[in-house]
Nucleic acid binder design. Structure first.
Lengths: 145, 145
DNA sequence: GAACATTACTTTGATTATCAAAACAAAATA
DNA sequence: TATTTTGTTTTGATAATCAAAGTAATGTTC
């Protein structure tokens, strides 16, 4: 494998997993009592325009059944609420509580900090070439498959 | 958030998860009947120099107890074998079977293909700046935390 | 508009992934 | 030899996941 492939592969394979587990423990330290997985569900709820069960599950790429159990737990723990759609009563719309929004905020802050550290340590703020490439990379993976 | 942060954040948050789930389904299509998680265990076994339970668990950042159950299943399914270390009989050394090595090969091939597609579509083969930056990024995350 | 089909979701049953704490066995140390 | 440390497994609990079956609302067709 040529070097460039190796580097990107490593980034994909090793680094992301590592970051995810760091993130989990850091959040724990900061008193967040939900898993990274649950955090991702909250994120998906927030970012999904019409946050029905199907739409959220689609975004997360899990089955709706899987999401049902996640949402059950989030509702129990006070992070989310369910309501039926007024127009189409088959649909269930998920909303986030203040508690959830607060957790998301802390999570975002952690990401900001991590990236700030990265930027200040690596001095890449101004590197337009890198950013363009990363943007392409990101776009590529989001669309290709 | 400034744009560059946004791009890297997106790469971390969205792209990685996406790729992982694509990868899972692609491997399924190619007749690999193990989960991505199990694949990661096989990878870790292969890459760990002295593949005892503790060393492998450390690399994967899971508890040894967790690894025990994963290895149990891999042994049941014929992907791995256990043996005791000759010198220190407390240690359990994991080895991979041909079946495991074959699965790893198919997995690697998928990664190669994915990256080949990326490279040919994006024409970044020669982009030394990008590669250097990605390498730094990779190094940074591996060492910082 | 009654019968049938589709859509949206939940439930069920099964497997996998994870941890912390307890148990166990070998090795190191005092 | 007795005690402690190290390496692993077991136990008990919870979370994450899917496929398939079940339920209820909506859409379609004749």
């Amino acid at each position: 494998m040529i070097k460039s492939k190796k580097v990107i592969n490593e980034l994909l394979v090793e680094v992301f997993n590592h970051i995810l587990s760091i993130e989990g423990s850091k959040l724990k330290e900061r008193g967040i009592k939900i898993s990274m997985n649950e955090m991702h569900v909250l994120e998906a709820v927030k970012k999904t325009r019409d946050p029905s069960m199907s739409n959220i599950a689609g975004r997360l790429r899990v089955t709706v059944g899987t999401l049902t159990t996640s949402v059950n737990r989030l509702v129990e723990k006070g992070y989310a609420t369910r309501k039926r759609d007024g127009k189409d009563k088959r649909k269930v719309i998920i909303s986030l509580t203040d508690k959830a929004l607060n957790s998301l905020r802390i999570h975002d802050e952690f990401h900001e900090e991590m990236l700030d550290a990265l930027f200040s340590d690596m001095n890449i703020e101004e590197d337009d070439v890198l950013l363009q490439s990363l943007e392409n990379l990101s776009f590529y993976f989001k669309n290709k498959y």
